[in-house]
Amino acid sequence: MTPTLWGRWQTRLLLLGTIGLLITIGFGALFGNFVTPLALLGYVLLLGLAWDIVYQALQSLRWDRDWPPLFMVGGGLLEALLLWGLIKADFLWAGLGLAGLPGVAPGLTLAQFALHYGTVFTVIFLIMFGPMKVIFLKWRFRGGQFF
């Protein structure tokens, strides 16, 4: 599937809102804290909407205007790094009079974050390369759009 911007947004919203939510609830139960994983999922979604604009702009520089799997993984890593950076940017939150990134427990470890983020990303990545085409027959022709 070669995404359009609307396709990126709609697919991100659908997959994070379903599969991503289920996995996140699972991690909430595992960590004994539902708020932090759900907040992280929300940040991934919101920041991702902005990231998608950047990805789409970069995609238009390519002759094939495609977005290979390697770029998807690269993008996923960048998104994770930015989010972890925001979590750890205490100076920024202190300047805003906050204890940290709202909704995220201060004790969140890198391992917990990486496990949660990595699981959501990997499962969604695999679903996009197969089952999505089976469930939504026209999805691949519409650049990831449902509407």
């Binding site: 070669t2 995609q59 205007r65 495609d66 022709f141 650049g143």
Partner: peptide, 17 residues
């Protein structure tokens, strides 16, 4: 040179539209 007879986005991306 291009991998297929048209750019990949012609098959389902923004160029299809």
């Amino acid at each position: 040179h291009q991998p297929y007879n048209f750019p990949k986005a012609c098959f389902g991306g923004d160029l299809r539209r």
